[in-house]
Design a protein around this nucleic acid. Structure first.
Lengths: 345, 345
DNA sequence: CTACAAGTCCAAAACGCTTTGGGAAAATGC
DNA sequence: GCATTTTCCCAAAGCGTTTTGGACTTGTAG
């Protein structure tokens, strides 16, 4: 069912039918209704390709999701982020096109997306410090929004981020208030900007209280269950083990819990743990009482908001808001408690 | 940079340039090289929309991923499945377009995809028994491949699936061999076809040995960590608790482990657990020795193969293979052991 | 040297839509 | 009742490709 066929069916010109369906004023109300009805009855949908060829709008947003080349791993938060973004796109009549791409090919992917005109804008995932993609996208004139931020980038760009520094600063302070002095940090990969900010928050909180930073207590890697387990096991085996941990993701925290229990220690009593919680749908932090004390920020919600911002930027590049900083809430669960007495300082 | 511009730049007609780039024979080898070089130099890429309008091929595959309406949850295996599929699409020059859609709108989404011509085919996720989507897609003439199967569908369709029945039958037999007689089953949602097959495998194995099936030991729900925990806690509190569990996903198994440890029991000694393991990148089943005894089948690999099959079906509808059954391997880890003595039969 | 087949290239139509530039009919102003 | 605006519709051009149907050149056979 094409426009032309529909038009012939109605005894009208394609022009009129097109205008009727797109809400232009120069068509009589009764014909508009007649057209709308016929369109519904015949299940007519304008061909996307033809439409965007004519309008120059792709009506699609690209998500280039980087594949960690080291571990061939795709970050589990993407599913939820994309679910959120998908909602916003669906409402606006946009498609979402995904490219899963290893770091090396990423620049070329953006270039292709632009040159082939397959999307109106992209969401940049997993930004690093001084991320070259921002310059690239600016250069080729592709509208974009960064999920996260990139320190060291001087030109302005649009972003939506969680206040990672503040979140980890507060979490660290919370542990310090409970009397903990040796606090392990199981951070994400520290090429990632969010991980750098979290580490900064952690170190600031320590510095504020004059607690010395011990590099032996800091780990950084991709946030898998195995990483949480291994790091926990290693740190707990130190001569002066930490009494508390700050962890960058629920998945890693679950691995850490395994290490803690395997060491015969009790979570929340012997060892305190605060994790960042992206509020993933399949990994809710407990039912009623949160299992882990956590800095929580729904990544699904972030996806929804990011998509809405990008759509607004594409629609009205001048007036749309260009930056948004979400605060994570610190929810107290069962995984934290006062530092055990008699610890070596 | 359009074809026309490139042609003018070269002093050729658009026809010739198009033919040169697409490998048609009626163009001199030297001009072909000249064109190819200029295209590379000027970073020319054919506009996807124009191309597919002209050819009638969308050069894109749709993935409609259902959003569980009850829990607003997106299954964590999608990320890995999509990563695998994305690889195959990238190689073939196809785009991947995603629609995240709640069950109610799914039929309309497929209709739209077809009517708007935005994809050449779709992958159907999360099939149920007698899934109406199969009839629908057949009816509207959209090529598709099902990830999983749908019992009770009489017309033939293309699918790729794991042998879930066999996997769970073997796993159950394995536990029976170890002397377990009360085996809990934490299944996925039993409207899903894969869950029905797993249950069938479980029950067949019990029947083969003449072990009576106890409905009190069977749970079925969306596979979250909380579900694993809750079910484990409840079943372990029964007057005659199970000595072993069969679990439908790593995430749920992790919740179960929490319940087991909280009950003061030891995984692999007091309680045996076998889980299905989708081999998710962020949730590897241990480093060297598998943590859980598991029926493993890489969902990422399934994504790759599914995509390749669908592409083949679109390219040569007659000759392409239309069905593929993957076997899960039963890998023995630390979570299983002989049934404790002195249990009530 | 002619006739015919390859070998190369091009102009124009087509894909399905939007949009520009009218044009006829109806409504309005005086 | 006539001029002018408004209302409603249409033909045709254009978006960037591919593809059809030649046309001109060159090579080859007789």
């Amino acid at each position: 069912m094409t426009l032309k066929e529909l038009a012939r069916h109605l005894g009208l010109s394609p022009t009129t039918v097109s205008r009727a369906l797109n809400g232009y004023p120069e068509v009589k109300e009764t014909t508009r209704r007649r057209v709308a009805e016929a369109a519904r009855a015949l299940n007519y949908r304008p061909n996307t390709r033809a439409k965007s060829l004519a309008t120059g709008q792709a009506m699609a947003i690209g998500h280039v999701i980087p594949l960690s080349s080291r571990h061939e791993m795709v970050n589990p938060i993407f599913a939820d982020f994309i679910a959120g973004a998908g909602e916003a796109y669906a409402r606006a009549g946009f498609d979402m096109v995904l490219s899963v791409v290893s770091d090396a090919d990423e620049a070329q992917t953006y270039r292709d997306l632009k040159a082939r005109g397959s999307v109106d804008g992209v969401i940049v995932h997993g930004p690093r410090a001084g991320d070259p993609r921002i310059d690239l996208l600016d250069e080729i004139g592709m509208p974009f929004l960064v999920h996260g931020r990139s320190t060291g980038t001087n030109r302005p760009y649009c972003w939506l981020d969680v206040n990672n520094r503040r979140a980890f600063q507060r979490a660290t302070a919370f542990l310090l208030d409970l009397g903990h002095r040796r606090i392990g940090l199981l951070n994400g990969l520290e090429v990632m900007d969010f991980a750098l900010r979290r580490r900064d928050g952690y170190e600031r909180a320590l510095a504020e209280r004059g607690v010395p930073r011990d590099p032996a207590l800091i780990r950084s890697d991709e946030m898998t269950e195995a990483y949480g387990y291994r790091s926990g096991r290693d740190l707990l085996a130190l001569p002066a083990p930490p009494t508390a941990f700050l962890v960058s993701s629920m998945i890693a925290a679950i691995g850490l819990r395994r290490a803690i229990e395997e060491a015969g220690l009790r979570l929340g009593r012997d060892i305190s743990v605060i994790t960042h919680d992206d509020d993933l749908s399949y990994l809710r932090n407990g039912d009623d009482v949160p299992l882990f004390t956590a800095t929580r920020s729904s990544v699904r919600d972030a996806g929804r908001q990011a998509a809405e911002m990008l759509l607004a930027i594409i629609a009205q590049p001048e007036t749309a808001p260009r930056e948004r900083l979400l605060e994570a809430e610190l929810t107290v669960g069962q995984s934290t408690g006062p530092a055990p007495k008699g610890q070596p300082s």
